[in-house]
C-alpha cells in the first residue's frame, strides 16, 4: 500500500515534468504523442499496484478468463451490429470483484481484443476507458443506488456515452489545433447513435442478465476461495 502511494506521487511528478517539457520543447505540439504518454503514465500506477500486490494464481486465471470472455463476447453478436456485451461483462466484473479487478479486466480486455482486431493508437484509449468503466463500477458498488437494478442500468447507460466521448478524444487530440466548436460538436454528433446503442444495450443486459451473472460470479468467487 505504502509503496504504491509513493509510486503514485512519483508518477504524478514525472507527468508534470513531461507536460512542461512538451510545452517547452515541442514547438509543433505533438499532442497525440503527449497524450499517449499521459495516458500511459496514468495507467502505470494501476498496473504497478497489480505487479506488487500478492496475487494468487487463481486470481490471475480468473481475471484473465474474464478479460478473454469480454474480448470474445462480440462473437455471438456478429449479426447484431452496435450491440456488444464487452462493457456489460466489465461492469459485472467490477461490481463483483472490486475496483482494481474491474480496471484490470477492462484494460486487458481492450488489449486482448485488439490482438485479434489489430492494435492501433486507439489501444491505450480503449484500455483506459474500459479500465475506468470497471474501476468505477467497483468503486460505486457499495453505493445504495448501485445496489438497485435501476441504479446499475443508469450507470451502464451513462457509461455508454462516457465511453464514446472518451474514444472521440483521440481524434480530437490528434487534431487539436483545428479545434473549434463546430468540429467538436460535429465529432460528438456523429457518434450519438453509436453511444445511444451502446448505452441501451448496457441497460438491456444489466436489467435482464445482471442478477443472473451476479449469482454465477459469486458462486465462482466462493469456489475459488476469493472472498474478501
Amino acid at each position: 500500500m505504502e509503496r504504491s502511494r509513493h509510486y503514485l506521487v512519483f508518477v504524478s511528478i514525472v507527468l508534470l515534468i513531461l507536460l512542461f517539457a512538451s510545452i517547452l520543447f515541442f514547438h509543433y505540439k505533438a499532442y497525440l504523442l503527449v497524450s499517449l504518454l499521459m495516458i500511459a503514465s496514468i495507467m502505470i500506477p494501476f498496473f504497478v499496484r497489480f505487479e506488487w500486490r500478492d496475487v494468487a494464481g487463481r486470481e490471475i486465471v480468473l481475471l484473465a478468463m474474464l478479460a478473454a470472455i469480454a474480448a470474445v463476447g462480440r462473437v455471438p453478436f456478429a449479426g447484431l451490429p452496435s450491440v456488444q456485451p464487452t462493457s456489460f461483462i466489465i461492469i459485472m466484473a467490477g461490481i463483483v470483484f472490486g475496483a482494481e479487478s474491474g480496471f484490470i479486466v477492462g484494460a486487458v480486455a481492450a488489449i486482448v481484443s485488439n490482438f485479434f482486431l489489430g492494435q492501433g493508437p486507439w489501444t491505450p484509449w480503449q484500455m483506459y476507458a474500459w479500465g475506468m468503466m470497471g474501476m468505477t463500477a467497483g468503486l460505486l458498488r457499495q453505493a445504495w443506488w448501485m445496489k438497485s437494478s435501476w441504479g446499475k442500468c443508469l450507470f451502464g447507460f451513462a457509461w455508454g456515452y462516457l465511453f464514446g466521448w472518451f474514444m472521440n478524444m483521440w481524434i480530437i487530440v490528434s487534431n487539436i489545433e483545428a479545434l473549434s466548436w463546430d468540429f467538436f460538436i460535429g465529432i460528438y454528433a456523429s457518434s450519438v447513435y453509436f453511444d445511444l446503442a451502446h448505452g441501451l444495450s448496457n441497460v438491456f443486459f444489466l436489467a435482464v442478465f445482471g442478477a443472473g451473472w451476479m449469482k454465477i460470479l459469486q458462486r465462482v468467487q466462493r469456489k475459488y476461495g476469493l472472498l474478501e
Binding site: V61, M65, L80, V83, P85, L217
Partner: peptide, 27 residues
C-alpha cells in the same frame, strides 16, 4: 432484435459459467 440479443447473452452466460469452472484446473 430483443430475442436475438437475449439468446446471444444466454450463450455467453453458459460460456462464462462453464469456463470459469474449468479455469480452476488451469490455476
Amino acid at each position: 432484435i430483443r430475442n436475438r440479443a437475449k439468446s446471444g447473452m444466454s450463450i455467453l452466460q453458459i460460456l462464462l459459467a462453464w469456463s470459469l469452472e474449468e479455469a480452476i484446473e488451469t490455476a
